[in-house]
């Protein structure tokens, strides 16, 4: 796997502040062990003690999946910022500016094209570090662009989600992105090309209840929280403690919602195998 040797330290730091104790060490949110960052990167951000899959930068994700870590980012359409002029304890436009500075991206979605074991593939990935990977107009527009670009260039589509759902600060304009992204996926599916959905931690709300659940094949990273309603909301509604493994990837697989629960280590190989089975039907 020579592509690992070209593994470059991501320029973009997206691990949330509390997970990083200092520049050198990261605390595993699952087992609490301190992990040496250089080693963590080498291990695809998987805890070497308990196997927990930590969130990882989108750039790292792309480098892990594409042949020789090579890919090209697709320009996504610019949209009007803050259509509602939304302000809670802080102005939305100021939040956006802060996230843009720290992530070097306009919004939560990045779309790239490259090869996976020589199959030209379009991958879109949500960055949970950018406002919780929430879906507003920009993400909706970006998903639509990814679908359109993949269909026009006859490439299979992979969407990797990590999102709390719709972006409240864009009000109904964000809710309708559920319908919009579903429409975009619908149109892409008419091309006959495969759409693989990969849900990572966490995938909830308006993102899980739209394009994420509509993959021809639904894959989830092990241990990821996936669901519609937040666990806290459910606890408050039913006033009982939740079952063990509730809303974990394995729980969803056992209840019939997910095809494959996957270890991140095997993602590239699994994707390559599935894409070949669906596209190169004879060998």
């Amino acid at each position: 796997m020579n592509w690992i040797s070209e593994f470059v330290r991501p320029k973009i730091k997206k691990t949330s502040a509390k997970e990083v104790s200092d520049n050198l060490w990261t605390k595993c949110p699952e087992c609490g062990q301190m992990l040496f960052n250089k080693e963590l990167e080498k291990d695809y951000f998987i805890c070497s003690f308990c196997g927990h899959h930590l969130r990882l930068p989108v750039e790292t994700r792309f480098k892990m999946l594409f042949d020789n870590s090579r890919y090209r980012l697709i320009n996504l359409p610019k949209v009007q910022d803050d259509p509602l002029n939304f302000k809670d304890t802080k102005r939305y436009i100021d939040r956006l500016r802060t996230y843009r500075r720290s992530s070097h991206n306009d919004d939560a979605l990045s779309v790239a094209v490259g090869n996976i074991d020589s199959i030209r593939t379009v991958i879109g990935a949500l960055d949970f570090g950018f406002m919780g990977g929430s879906m507003g107009i920009a993400v909706g527009e970006g998903i639509a662009k990814a679908c359109d670009f993949a269909a026009k260039t006859s490439a299979p589509l992979v969407l990797i989600t990590a999102s709390g759902g719709a972006r409240m600060q864009e009000g109904m304009l964000s809710l309708v992105q559920m319908a919009r992204t579903t429409a975009a996926i619908n149109a892409f599916k008419e091309s006959g090309l495969p759409y693989i959905s990969i849900m990572t931690d966490p995938t909830t709300g308006g993102v899980s209840a739209s394009f994420a659940m509509l993959g021809d094949i639904n894959i989830a990273e092990q241990g990821s929280i996936i669901g519609f309603a937040g666990a806290r909301v459910i606890e408050q509604t039913i006033r009982e403690t939740l079952p063990e493994h509730f809303q974990k990837a394995e729980y969803l697989r056992d209840h019939g919602m997910i095809d494959i629960v996957i270890n991140r280590m095997n993602m590239r190989e699994t994707l390559a195998r599935i894409l070949k089975l669906l596209i190169a039907k004879t060998n």
Partner: peptide, 20 residues
């Protein structure tokens, strides 16, 4: 409905496929 039964039967999938 936000509940354990709704989640285990795939609330997200049911909504997504209803939109579709």
């Amino acid at each position: 409905f936000p509940g354990v039964d709704a989640e285990e039967r795939g609330q997200a999938q049911a909504i997504a496929s209803s939109i579709e």
